[in-house]
Structures are given as structure tokens and as C-alpha cells.
Amino acid sequence: MNINATIIGQLIAFVVFVIFCMKFVWPPLMAAIEARQATIADGLAASDRAAKDLELAQEKATAQLKEAKVQAASIVDAAKKLEAKIVEETASKAQVEKERILASGHAEIETERNRVKEELRAQVAVLAIAGAEKILERSIDAAAHSDILDKLVAEL
């Protein structure tokens, strides 16, 4: 087991291999590994961000839903109030209308009654005269006694 010139050959081979490895093997491999590590780190960061965004969005959605519920409740309230108001207004309008119709009915009835009364009065006068004529026959002169008859008619 002598040490001989092999040591020189091996040393040269060693140096050449290390230089080759340093120039052409290590850098591209390391670059690829580091690039992948960066990609993975970015991906993880992005997923973290997405999770946070999702949480925020959910919170926002919940808040909006709550607000919408409150708004809906207030709208329903307002609608109920409006309904009550409309019913009230309509009822009062109907009342007024009813009174107006009643009043006009009364007036019409009154007019009709007065007209009938006049008619009747006239007819009664005629009937009274006719009755008196029948009772008195010739003894009574219509013209002579018209003032009495007129007085009678006026009293009816």
C-alpha cells in the first residue's frame, strides 16, 4: 500500500469535479429548489389572505343581513301605520258621504211631501166643494159662497 502518483491524478479529478459541481450542478438545482420554496410560501400566504378575506366577507354579510332585517321590520311598521291611516280616512269619508246622502234624501222626501200635501189640499178643496154642492144642491150659490169655501180650503 504505497502512496504514489495516483494521489496527483485523484487530486486533479477531485478539483475538476468540485469546480464542475460548483459551476454547473449546484446553482441550477438550488435555484429550482428556492424558486419552488418561494412559490409554496406565496401560495400559503395567499391562502391565508383568502381565509381572512372570507371571514371578513362573512362578517359583512351577517351585518348586512341584520341591517336588512331591521329595514324590513321598519317598512312593515310603516305599512301598517299607513294602512290604519287609510282605513281611518276612508271610514271618515264614508261617514261624510253617508251624511250627505241622508241629508239629500231627507230634502227630497220633504219636497215630495210638500208637493203631495199641496196636491191633496187642492183635491180636498175640490172634494169639499163637490160634497157641499151635493148637500146644498141648488140652495147654495157657488159664487155667493166662494169666500166661505176659500176660507175652508185655507184651513185644511
Partner: peptide, 29 residues
Amino acid sequence: WNLDSLGWAVFLGLVFLTIFRSVAKKATP
């Protein structure tokens, strides 16, 4: 010169560098 030691050492070094270099050339992130 120990031709067997030298030969095998160089051969195995080339095996190592060939494999690693071929991977390094095509290395993708």
C-alpha cells in the same frame, strides 16, 4: 499510477456529475 483506482474514481465521478447535471439542466421549480 494505480489505473484501477483512478479509472473507477473518474468513472464514478462522471456518473455522479452526469446524473446531477442532467437533472440540473432540466430542473423545474
